[in-house]
């Protein structure tokens, strides 16, 4: 690992992404996320939240700018280097990306299988996650037969299954009620305590209304720090870092 600065997990420098024909999804976005930080990414629909998250796991490549994750320049990463990095990233996609004909357990296990985890670990971890998300009874159900909210929780479970260093959650609570949202947020917090870096893209202001985490807002592909109350600056960030 060629970590330039180990405490920086995500570093974006003047990143732009334009989709054909002329959709400027991201414009000159610069962002630094420190290891162990939980960060909320908000903004209107179409502001570029998903695009930003996809850049971080190289589901998309930027037109301009530098994207560094865990000290590695994604543009120069390929082959096994990229594969190994991706195993350290857990992404819960907005469209879930579940395999509808595979069972819930198989869907979750996939993230651990590609990392060659032990069978026993996979089984234990899958049960544990389903337990925490109150889906234990769906263990052997094909994912395609679940409700939207259930599918959403499965995609979150898969993102967290392999104990990733970086969690990218795209609208993780869009289909969930208040109570279930709390379950999911508890799970994220658990991973935050474990030391994982967590970036959550969301419209749901309630998720970050307690003001304990940094919030950034995308507006038409441009980053600007929202003048919201409860926004915590670099100060709290360094406190968190120190606590690790």
């Amino acid at each position: 690992m060629t970590a330039k600065s180990p405490e920086i997990m995500v570093d974006l420098i003047k990143v732009s992404k334009t989709y054909p024909p002329r959709v400027h999804a991201l414009v000159d976005v610069s962002l630094t996320v420190h290891a162990g930080e939980m960060l909320f990414l908000t903004g209107m629909s179409g502001a570029g939240k998903t695009t930003l998250l996809r850049l971080l796991c190289r589901g998309e490549t930027p037109d301009k700018g530098l994207v560094e994750v865990a000290g590695q320049d994604l543009d120069r990463l390929s082959g096994s280097g990229l594969q190994q990095l991706r195993r350290r990233i857990g992404m819960a996609y907005q469209d879930f990306k579940l395999l509808p004909r595979h069972t819930v357990a198989e869907n979750i296990a996939l993230a651990m299988e590609v990392a060659y985890r032990k069978r026993s670990f996979i089984r234990k971890r899958t049960r544990e996650l389903l337990e925490k998300l109150r889906l234990a009874d769906k263990y052997a159900t094909p994912a395609g037969e679940l409700s939207r909210g259930e599918q959403q929780r499965i995609s979150i479970a898969r993102a967290l299954a392999n104990m990733p260093d970086l969690v990218l959650a795209d609208e993780p609570t869009g289909n969930l009620d208040r109570e279930t949202t709390a379950l999911v947020m508890d799970l994220f917090r658990e991973h935050e305590e474990r030391g994982a870096t967590i970036i959550i893209a969301t419209h749901d202001r309630e998720l970050f209304s307690d003001g304990s985490h940094r919030v950034i807002e995308l507006t038409a592909g441009q980053l600007r720090s929202p003048e919201e109350p409860g926004r915590t600056g670099e100060q709290s960030l360094h406190n968190e870092e120190a606590s690790q």
Binding site: Q84, R86, R88, L110, A111, V114
Partner: peptide, 16 residues
Amino acid sequence: ERELELLRLLGASNHY
């Protein structure tokens, strides 16, 4: 196809 795309996003090795 979808599954293979997902596997790649999850970081599956070429061998896998």
